[in-house]
């Protein structure tokens, strides 16, 4: 049976709903205004559409790329490389973090290497990666993995180590072995941190993919940006950036959905 709400509570819920609608309205309005002003400035010649493009030119470029069959290929290539890099980095990073949590000695031995790897600009490894694994998709995925994996290891390891010592003691007092402590306490306890790592890695994986495609690729949105800038087709550059925004936003949205499910 539906619970009868008091007038004050009904008013409170209405205000919450109204606030939500206002936020969404302004988010959309800001986006529409941005597109409108951009288009207006380009049409009136305040900004040069050759350098700054315009929403209508981006729409035309998308239609053209779609018509010659290239658009889906570039989107698919980048999406595939990003998701693959993201998954490998998260899984491998998680496994390494577990190993480092398991053995304090191993953690102490590898600590300086992790710090160095974390501070190293991964792009510097680009030429070496091409020599090691060849150009194209494999180099791009490796770049993406390298960028995401260190942050995954460090964040997850910190989450594992900061697990309440008394809770571990409680598990031990109930005769839990180390596997049980890991699977029944340490891992579920680190779930909120894991979701944060996923969110950070969505952005990082795209950085890796675009960097990899800049360096060595024949397809993908990073390649398209590089191609557009070299051929002075800046509409293609802006189109690729727009598509990157949409795809990265979509992936972030999926992770946020996962977060909401976890919080329930």
């Amino acid at each position: 049976m539906k619970k009868q709400l008091s007038k004050a509570h009904e008013k409170y819920l209405k205000r919450l709903k109204k606030d939500k609608i206002i936020v969404i309205f302004w988010q959309i309005a800001l986006f529409v205004c941005f597109l409108g002003i951009w288009q207006l400035l380009a049409d009136t010649g305040v900004i040069d559409p050759f350098f700054f493009s315009s929403p209508s030119r981006i729409a035309v470029t998308i239609v053209d790329l779609f018509a010659n069959g290239n658009l889906l290929l570039h989107i698919w290539t980048s999406l595939y490389e990003t998701i693959l890099g993201f998954i490998i980095a998260v899984l491998l990073g998680l496994i390494i973090a577990v190993m480092l949590w398991w053995s304090e000695k191993l953690r102490k031995i590898l600590e300086p290497y992790l710090i160095i790897l974390n501070s190293l600009p991964k792009i510097a490894l680009g030429p070496m990666i091409i020599f090691w694994v060849g150009s194209g998709t494999s180099a791009t995925v490796v770049m993406s993995v390298l960028i995401c994996i260190v942050i995954t290891i460090i964040s997850m390891l910190n989450a594992f180590i900061s697990c309440d010592k008394d809770k571990i003691l409680l598990m031990k007092s109930m005769r839990a072995n180390k596997f049980q402590i890991l699977f029944k306490l340490v891992l579920p306890n680190a779930l909120p941190e894991f979701v944060s790592v996923l969110k950070i890695n969505v952005g990082m994986a795209w950085v890796g993919t675009v960097m990899g495609e800049y360096l060595s690729s024949k397809a993908g949105l990073g390649y398209l940006i590089n191609y557009g800038s070299q051929m002075l087709k800046l509409d293609i550059v802006m189109t690729s950036i727009t598509l990157l925004c949409v795809l990265a936003g979509g992936m972030y949205g999926l992770v946020s959905l996962l977060e909401k499910r976890q919080q329930k």
Binding site: D166, L185, P188
Partner: peptide, 18 residues
């Protein structure tokens, strides 16, 4: 070690929230 004849109750309840 971790004697099964003994139960331990801590300062905080340490219930697992999940």
């Amino acid at each position: 070690k971790n004697d099964p004849r003994i139960g331990y109750m801590f300062q905080r309840d340490h219930l697992f929230e999940w």
